[in-house]
Computed example of a mutant assay.
Amino acid sequence: MIYRFRVILDNDTDEAVFRDLEIREEDTLEDLHNVITQSFGFDGTEMASFYISDAQWNQGEEISLFDLSDDGSARLMNETRINDVAHEASPKLIYVYDFLSMWTFYVELAEIVEEAEGFDYPNLMFVQGQVPDAAPEKSFEAESDDDDSDEIEDGLDVDDYEHLDFDENWN
């Protein structure tokens, strides 16, 4: 079977930037990583991870390109088949490329179809929008409550070193 994915760049512009891709269900997440990077014009040399996602796009288990864990327990893209993590019951993944720039993509399984005779897979079906020169800025702010009673006002000026209890030139 062939999985058709829509891969949407998370950006703050009005222009939608996405790619529609086809790939075999038994291919690995590393194969999907390769077609995503190629279709968006990246060289594919940066660290990347997929995250299993729920219906609200909450980030779940990480599946990484390389094992950077201390104990070698990381789940890897080249060992994970696409149909093991994406299917009709759980069609959403989050893909992050280049952890310094944090290119973030929403990957959603659009449909599952029969393999067409004479087609090569993976296949780039459709391109919409231009990829910006730099990754969109991310705002990592905590959710705020309406109750501000937890805020602490300490009155310290972080630029005023004279009143602090340490030597700013300690080294």
Results as ranks from 00 to 15, higher is better:
66 F>R: 00
67 D>K: 01
41 G>F: 08
144 S>C: 04
137 E>Y: 10
64 S>W: 00
102 M>Q: 09
106 Y>A: 12
166 F>R: 06
18 F>P: 03
167 D>K: 05
108 E>R: 03
75 R>S: 01
46 E>I: 00
10 D>N: 15
22 E>R: 14
94 I>N: 08
15 E>S: 13
26 E>M: 14
32 L>S: 04
141 E>A: 13
127 V>S: 15
167 D>V: 09
70 D>M: 10
2 I>T: 05
169 N>T: 12
112 I>A: 09
52 I>V: 12
31 D>T: 11
140 F>R: 12
147 D>Q: 00
2 I>Q: 05
23 I>A: 03
12 D>E: 13
50 F>R: 07
101 S>M: 13
157 D>P: 05
127 V>K: 11
17 V>C: 08
132 P>C: 04
120 D>Y: 00
42 F>I: 10
77 M>Y: 05
48 A>N: 09
137 E>I: 14
123 N>D: 06
39 S>L: 05
43 D>H: 02
159 D>R: 11
74 A>K: 03
78 N>V: 09
132 P>L: 00
20 D>Y: 07
114 E>R: 08
49 S>F: 12
67 D>W: 01
124 L>R: 02
65 L>R: 06
75 R>D: 00
152 I>Y: 07
170 W>P: 04
54 D>Y: 03
68 L>E: 02
145 D>I: 04
86 A>W: 05
129 G>S: 06
145 D>Q: 09
115 E>P: 00
125 M>K: 08
78 N>R: 10
156 L>C: 08
127 V>Q: 11
116 A>Q: 13
130 Q>I: 12
80 T>M: 00
17 V>S: 02
145 D>N: 10
64 S>F: 00
148 D>T: 11
81 R>N: 09
153 E>Q: 09
73 S>E: 01
7 V>A: 01
136 P>F: 05
153 E>C: 06
121 Y>P: 11
24 R>K: 12
6 R>H: 00
122 P>V: 04
3 Y>V: 03
163 H>S: 14
148 D>M: 10
93 L>P: 05
150 D>I: 06
4 R>E: 12
109 L>K: 04
57 W>Q: 06
83 N>L: 03
155 G>S: 05
50 F>Y: 14
157 D>F: 05
4 R>D: 02
28 T>R: 06
12 D>L: 12
58 N>C: 10
56 Q>H: 15
137 E>C: 13
156 L>T: 11
46 E>D: 09
76 L>S: 00
145 D>S: 15
66 F>K: 04
150 D>G: 01
81 R>A: 14
117 E>N: 11
144 S>T: 10
126 F>E: 15
21 L>Y: 01
132 P>V: 05
48 A>L: 11
29 L>H: 01
65 L>I: 06
75 R>K: 15
